[in-house]
């Protein structure tokens, strides 16, 4: 027979209420206050206009473009009602020590909105709770890339990344992340 048994329920039990509270707080922390009616959920980027706005031809100013063009368009990420309900469910499972359940619930949410940085931040936080800092790092880095242009999401992803790096004793890299402009 298969000897392996679910380690998480066993591990979660002795850690007790402190961790559970911590789980709720941590996960809760990544979960914005009152989510607004979401933009199309699987398409966090607003669709581009069909014909791009172009500078008038042979305008001398256009040859030295202003630096702000290099900045991505500011935007905000939201959870759709479906993923929001799954994230809420995952928080509740995690708070009751069922980290496996929380993990597969977040998996469902990711299948619905794979490009939403908020979900990758949630997943990174969950991996940290599971003490899997290496996997947390991957999720946090992915979240950071997807959060480009969204200061709030960038800061949350950055914090998760710094925590994941610290948990791997990579403090200098964590500090470097924390020094990024989006962290302030």
């Amino acid at each position: 027979m298969v000897q392996e048994h679910r380690s998480l329920s066993g591990a979660a039990a002795p850690i007790g209420a402190v961790l559970l509270l911590g789980a709720a707080l941590l996960l809760g922390g990544c979960f914005g206050p009152a989510p607004r009616p979401a933009a199309p959920s699987d398409n966090p980027i607003p669709p581009s206009p069909s014909s791009p706005a172009l500078p008038p031809p042979s305008s001398p100013a256009a040859s030295t473009p202003p630096p702000e063009h290099a900045q991505p368009v500011p935007r905000e990420n939201h959870l759709s009602p479906a993923t929001r309900s799954l994230v809420t469910q995952a928080h509740s499972l995690a708070a009751h020590g069922d980290l496996d359940g929380a993990s597969s619930t977040l998996d469902r949410a990711l299948r619905i909105e794979p490009n939403n940085p908020l979900l990758w931040i949630e997943l990174a936080r969950l991996r940290l709770l599971e003490s899997d800092a290496h996997l947390a790092e991957g999720c946090a880095r992915k979240a950071l890339v997807l959060a480009s242009g969204d200061r709030d999401a960038q800061a949350q992803a950055g914090r998760a990344l710094a925590d994941a790096l610290r948990a791997q004793q990579r403090n200098p890299e964590a500090l470097e992340v924390e020094r990024q402009p989006f962290m302030h």
């Binding site: 980027i45 581009s48 206009p49 791009p52 706005a53 256009a62 063009h69 368009v73």
Partner: peptide, 24 residues
């Protein structure tokens, strides 16, 4: 890359599409 220097086509103004038109 934002700092890439690309020679301009003679008689045309260089046009940066800007990130607003990403993936357009």
């Amino acid at each position: 890359p934002a700092d890439a220097v690309v020679p301009k086509k003679p008689g045309c103004s260089g046009a940066r599409a800007g990130a607003a038109t990403q993936a357009a």
